[in-house]
Design a protein around this nucleic acid. Structure first.
Length: 464
RNA sequence: UCCUUGAUAGCUCAGCUGGUAGAGCAGGCGACUGUUAAUCGCCGGGUCGUAGGUUCGAGUCCUACUCAGGGAGCCA
């Protein structure tokens, strides 16, 4: 019977049964005792199963001895308890069928050795065969499943907001243009500008930078909703934390305030972290070897309650801190990464929610507080990474929303459908945004976000 | 975009005050072995990122460019 490598490693279905496994060779070791040991991985779990291949097989000399890392095979044999150390079970092979050998083993990029992550980024089509990227892919899948499961269990509906949009959701952020116009022969208006009425949608269109505004409309109908999909930013950011194409999770809850939002963020993160520790301990153990403390970090995160601090209080804490900062903390300015790390790592030593920021540094849709100078915004800061979630209570009062838009030089009439939501049965509501890849970076202890997504897109790089 | 570091064999790297290139791994061959990214021996493998310049002579010094890493800003 056909079994997965994962099953075989667990001795399933039972020692003594004839099983078939299929996968890719990791290593081959020959013994003159008349056998070869072939480690085979099918990617379904971290470890490879060991095949014990006797030299009596008809294709032993012609094929088995030419197996190198990356070759694809299937093998039928008997599942047995291993005589060697290092694995509990192995397969005593009766046959080995080769699907594809490696053309030129010397230049096959994925060798049984440590590769640099930079090198592997240039091998985007082969890097999923490595331990690291196999593990990242599996953790990513389980995280995505846990996220959907969390929201589903809490009564949320998944809303698929559009990828192609006409407006800039936050009035900030460079967008990728979507157009079918002939770039070598652009239609012009009488004023000499590009005539987008001739374009596919009859107007200027872009790839979305956030699904938030769209999902708010569904929130004010279905009460609890979330988005989980791709997002695009054309910023020229060359950092370990930015991608031009990334996946974002944005829940939105009606009849809720900022405290409800922070509660949701806390339940959400703990649920997902718990799921990964329960479901992917094999891969987490592997990451632990590369980055000591990643498991403990998640354990502590799950076990601690989030500290909540007012922005104004946070500034005071930073001003009174003995630590010297490169940028002096000052009320009215955004917290620097060094400030965020200090608050969460040194001052409280567990996750922190900073709440109620000065209005001038936050987006137009965030709700004005009673004090008239702060808005109901929050950032969740985590030890070891800093900001992991940003959210807010939304401004549900039309007059105040319009006032803030004008203050930020946005034309309210361009947002009429969004303003309608405040005219017809408006309610207090709140939500937050989370970059999925940043979550993966944190879970796996990765250093660069380009390794948290299968095919990273960043300025100057769109290979594969 | 700014600052900074780097680019030498398929991969990871060494190569001093300039004197025309080395190791480990991988690959091939052999030895040995129920082996664990095995071990040992031998062999093949390089336009030193690109283009100029200085010099009798450049991997090494200078200039420009390209690409990459790290940091910053922006943010998720």
């Amino acid at each position: 019977m056909l079994v997965s490598v994962k099953q075989a490693l667990a001795g399933q279905p039972a020692v003594g049964t004839k099983v078939e496994v299929r996968g890719w060779v990791r290593t081959r070791r020959d013994s003159k005792a008349g056998i070869s040991f072939v480690a085979v991985s099918d990617g379904g779990c971290h470890d490879a199963i060991q095949l014990v291949v006797p030299n009596t097989l008809p294709n032993y000399a012609s094929e088995v001895l030419h197996l190198t890392a990356g070759a694809s095979i299937s093998s039928i044999g008997t599942l047995v308890a291993s005589q060697g150390k290092g694995q509990a079970f192995e397969i005593q092979a009766d046959s080995v069928t080769v699907f594809g050998l490696v053309d030129d083993p010397e230049t096959y990029p994925i060798q049984p050795k440590q590769h640099s992550l930079e090198f592997l980024r240039e091998q985007g089509h082969l890097r999923p065969r490595t331990n690291t990227f196999g593990a990242v892919a599996r953790v990513r899948h389980h995280a995505a499943q846990a996220i959907h499961r969390f929201f589903h269990e809490e009564g949320f509906f998944w809303v698929n907001t559009p990828i192609i949009t006409a407006a800039d959701a936050e009035g900030a952020g460079q967008m990728f243009r979507v157009s079918t116009l002939d770039m070598t022969n652009l239609p012009k208006t009488e004023a000499g500008k590009i005539d987008y009425s001739k374009d596919f949608f009859g107007k200027e269109t872009f790839l979305t930078v956030s699904g938030q505004l769209n999902v708010e409309a569904y929130c004010l109908a279905l009460s609890k909703v979330y988005t989980f999909g791709p997002t695009f930013r054309a910023e020229n950011s060359n950092t370990t934390r930015h991608l031009a194409e990334f996946w974002m999770i944005e829940p939105e809850i009606a009849f809720a305030n900022l405290n409800d939002d922070a509660d949701l963020a806390e339940r959400f993160l703990k649920y997902v972290f718990k799921a990964i520790l329960n479901e992917r301990m094999d891969d987490m153990a592997f990451f632990e070897k590369a980055q000591k403390g990643v498991i403990e970090r998640l354990d502590k995160f799950i076990g601690s309650s989030f500290e909540r601090i007012e922005y104004t209080a946070a500034i005071e804490i930073l001003k009174n801190a003995k630590k010297k900062f490169e940028y002096a903390p000052e009320w009215g300015k955004d917290l620097q990464t060094e400030h965020e790390r200090y608050l969460t790592e040194e001052h409280v030593g567990r996750p922190v929610v900073v709440m109620n920021y000065p209005e001038q540094i936050k987006a137009f849709y965030m709700r004005m507080n009673e004090d008239g100078r702060t808005v109901a915004a929050m950032d969740v800061l985590a030890p070891g990474i800093g900001e992991i979630i940003g959210g807010s209570q939304r401004e549900e009062r039309l007059d105040l929303l319009d006032a803030r838009m004008r203050k930020m030089n946005l034309e309210p009439s361009h947002y009429n459908w969004y303003r309608d939501l405040r005219r017809y049965g408006s309610v207090p509501h709140a939500g937050f945004g989370l970059g999925f890849e940043r979550l993966i970076v944190y879970l796996c202890g990765l250093a660069n976000i380009r390794d948290a997504i299968p095919y990273p897109r960043v300025p100057g790089w769109a290979q594969f």
